[in-house]
């Protein structure tokens, strides 16, 4: 039994059946990719996992507990962190402050009224945030405004912010969308390193086959709201159904 169990999940928007009958099991400490053509329901599925959407049918269990009906911040506290397609960071705040916020959230919970403490006196949190920045190789940029970072650095920062919460499951929504090749490769290396060094499960939604085949241990192919096939990358590459639905052109191009 996996750390994330999705059973018979369906979601309908008006006349559109976005998700049909999705079953998915993500094994602990694995890297699991979900791929599929545009409109396959990848993002809808992700939104159902983090509490942004509530599916019409089915269940989503994380570590034996249902996440359905919980607010995003509660689901995050259960140990699920999400990285967005366009990096969601605190643009007006400094890089260090960006890193401090998840550290405070991890230690102090959803709300903590500490209006009379000086932020910079909290050595424990500051150390943790700086340590994380070093790990992300961003320590030299700590006083920069986060909005002025490059796209690749924003992504790094966002991933670092998620990791500083020590999540058990990291969800990534097209983490390399709109990135240059060099930035994409850096991100792949970073994610590889994360999955090697930590007890963490990574679920990744991606368009870029290069990213998927470099990272994933298992791949689920989603088409028209239902999982077409789930297998290892090697088997997926050669799978006739997948080639027909989705991959054929990419391989021809390669």
């Amino acid at each position: 039994m996996g750390i994330l169990e999705v059973k018979n999940v369906g979601k309908r928007f008006g006349g559109l059946q976005a998700l049909g009958d999705v079953n998915l099991s993500v094994a602990e400490n694995s890297v699991h990719a979900i791929i599929g053509p545009n409109g396959a329901g990848k993002s809808t599925l992700l939104n159902c996992l983090v509490g942004k959407l509530i599916p019409d049918t089915g269940s989503v269990m994380f570590d034996g507990q249902s996440v359905l009906g919980r607010k995003p911040f509660k689901i995050n506290q259960m140990g699920i962190s999400r990285v967005f397609q366009t990096p969601e960071i605190f643009g007006e705040l400094s890089v260090l402050e960006n890193m401090l916020i998840p550290c405070f959230a991890k230690r102090d919970g959803a709300f903590h009224l500490s209006a009379f403490k000086n932020m910079l006196d909290d050595k424990e949190i500051i150390d943790r945030a700086q340590h994380m920045l070093e790990e992300m190789k961003m320590a030299d940029k700590h006083s920069m405004n986060a909005a002025s970072l490059s796209r690749g650095d924003k992504r790094r920062l966002e991933i670092g912010m998620c990791l500083s919460q020590e999540p058990r499951l990291l969800l990534l929504d097209e983490p390399t969308a709109g990135m240059a090749r060099a930035d994409t490769n850096n991100t792949i290396d970073l994610l590889k390193q994360i999955s090697d060094e930590r007890d963490i499960t990574i679920a990744i939604i991606e368009h870029d086959m290069h990213v998927v085949f470099s990272l994933a241990e298992r791949i689920t192919v989603l088409a028209q709201g239902t999982p077409l096939v789930e297998d290892t990358p090697d088997n997926i590459k050669g799978h006739p159904k997948v080639r027909e639905a989705y991959l054929g052109e990419t391989q021809d191009a390669a």
């Binding site: 643009g91 007006e92 998840p102 403490k117």
Partner: peptide
């Protein structure tokens, strides 16, 4: 208040509520 963690959270609310929600903050 401006220099406290609470003040920083308030600035974070102004900056990006989405990220706050997905960082376990209410």
């Amino acid at each position: 208040i401006f220099r406290s963690p609470f003040g920083m959270m308030l600035r974070a609310v102004k900056s990006n509520q989405q990220r706050m929600n997905y960082t376990g903050l209410n």
